[in-house]
Design a protein around this nucleic acid. Structure first.
Lengths: 166, 166
DNA sequence: TATTGTTATACTCTATAACTATA
DNA sequence: TATAGTTATAGAGTATAACAATA
């Protein structure tokens, strides 16, 4: 199945380069698709709210998981502890999240989003969802869009059963 | 369609954080899935061949498009010209590609992969395809895997009809 | 005047190591 | 002994600006 086929669509979206050999490489197609989603994010959230993708994700995960720790965030996003410290520093200095020392484990920092942080995360998510739907409407049906999200989620779940991968 | 549902799968693969609000954000699911494909790449190609993902992609696109220019590569990958210069420098210093001045347009550099470069690209692609298939086999059927690749390709094609995006 | 490619430079993001304070 | 978090530092990668050569 999925035997090699050479069609006019075996070409890069920009630059018109033949990519027949890369067509079935998941990492490559992911990188190409990420160019689009990154552009949508930068336009709809990054620039207007001055938020990097990581900042948005960290903020939203804190909104969804009040009382969580930085260590769990670091594991969820496969980034290092010093990295998380920096991003939380920025979000905290902007008044979007708060750090509190945990009562049960005094090493741990308990994270909460402020009202402003919650509002910003909600607004950002709404903008992204709308913009992504609009950007892909010409190429993907609503059903395809939903399937894509599910399949990506399944791929993400392959983490952990492997040696590497955060 | 795709109405919000709260299920046990609305959680990050690692760290077990609730991600219900992020579930439908394509950029987020892409980033999570990329953690897996990046790990596969690093293990199967990055470390053994000392190749970054960009280097592999640049090399493979040159193999597939002999005689192409750096400008087209930059457009295809949505990276800047100085960036491409650097990556080609590295590939050339390792004897994997050659630069020649174009006869028709003497500003342009014509790119060719060496025999060694061609062999390396082929070997790397084979390893990635095998490793990706194996890594995802437990989570995606062969059909789902193929559909995912097609849908990602369609997303990538949304580039260009937009303002931003390289 | 626009395009190809290079150099120089600065910036962002990330990773590692060393440290503290708890457990 | 291991974990949570911070700091300091170095590295990788990217972007911008300025330049040369050509179209």
């Amino acid at each position: 199945m999925a035997s090699k086929r050479l069609s006019r669509s075996d070409t890069t979206p920009a630059g018109r380069l033949d990519e027949a050999r890369l067509h079935d490489v998941l990492g490559y197609q992911m990188a190409q698709a990420t160019i689009v989603s990154n552009a949508v994010f930068a336009e709809q959230v990054g620039r207007p709210f001055d938020l990097r993708p990581v900042e948005y994700t960290v903020l939203t995960l804190i909104v969804e998981n009040p009382g969580g720790s930085q260590a769990r965030l670091a594991r969820a996003l496969a980034v290092t502890a010093p990295n998380i410290t920096m991003w939380i520093d920025r979000l905290e200095s902007r008044g979007l999240v708060r750090r509190e020392q945990s009562a049960r484990d005094r090493r741990s920092q308990v994270l909460h989003a402020t009202q402003e942080g919650i509002a910003l995360a909600r607004a950002a998510t709404q903008r992204i969802l709308d913009a992504e739907r609009q950007a892909l409407a010409a190429h993907l049906s609503a059903a395809e869009h939903a399937i894509l999200l599910e399949l990506l989620h399944k791929v993400a779940c392959a983490r952990g059963e492997r040696s590497g991968g955060g």
